[in-house]
Design a protein around this nucleic acid. Structure first.
Lengths: 109, 109
DNA sequence: GTTAAATACCTTGCAATACAAGATATATAC
DNA sequence: GTATATATCTTGTATTGCAAGGTATTTAAC
């Protein structure tokens, strides 16, 4: 297991929501986009199950479309519930990341 | 399970190392310190197993001392291996947190 | 037309870890 | 002796990233 694996837990789902909010996108493209944002190569074994889970939870919805080169693509968009969850995620992230930064910079609140 | 629980995975151990590096400290005190840095009440069921694990891995070492009010305290200090691990953690944290910030601020590298 | 490569998606099972719940022990104050 | 605050540990559960392996489609090369 990679060293950053544990660190991504509870973070990846929010990042996917944030990217999907920018505009309709399909899984394969998402993986590339995450890498462009600085995430080290995330495997499909990570992304596809996550997307399915979030779809089942009603955070995102999917529509199939034909591709110009390959099998059908599954395009995802954010639902209202997904937008609310994204806001909650951002709040949690700000709380946690500022706490960590406080610890690393050695100053209390 | 709390919402931030998953987000703390792979982050807490590094934060403990960073606090222990500041100076000898025991578990009970550590919990209070974490809260002062902004972490919401972390239970002892989280902290003590983590400390034991890190001790077993040789990242920290412990000495028992009498307390003025209560049972003996177990004071922890950082080992050399722990210092190296702390540096690695900081590198991982900077990589991951900047990636997340990139996603949330919607700008690629 | 068959083969190869790139695209695109899914499933199963494992490993790691935060935490709830419960247990134990010491010292002080009443 | 009883209550309270201090201080530590153990067991079991839930969640989730990911490796490994599988399937299907389109285009291009041979």
């Amino acid at each position: 297991m990679s060293e950053t694996t544990q660190m991504l837990k509870g973070i990846l789902d929010g990042c996917l929501l944030a990217i999907i909010k920018e505009g309709e996108i399909y899984g394969y493209e998402l993986a590339a986009k995450l890498e462009s944002y600085g995430f080290r190569s995330l495997s499909e074994g990570t992304i596809y199950p996550l997307l399915l889970r979030m779809q089942k939870e009603g955070l995102i919805s999917a529509t199939l479309r034909k591709s110009t080169a390959g099998p059908k693509r599954k395009y995802y968009t954010l639902t209202e519930k997904g937008e609310r969850e994204l806001k909650l995620f951002i709040g949690r992230w700000e709380q946690v990341s500022s706490s960590v930064d406080n610890v690393l910079n050695k100053r209390g609140i």
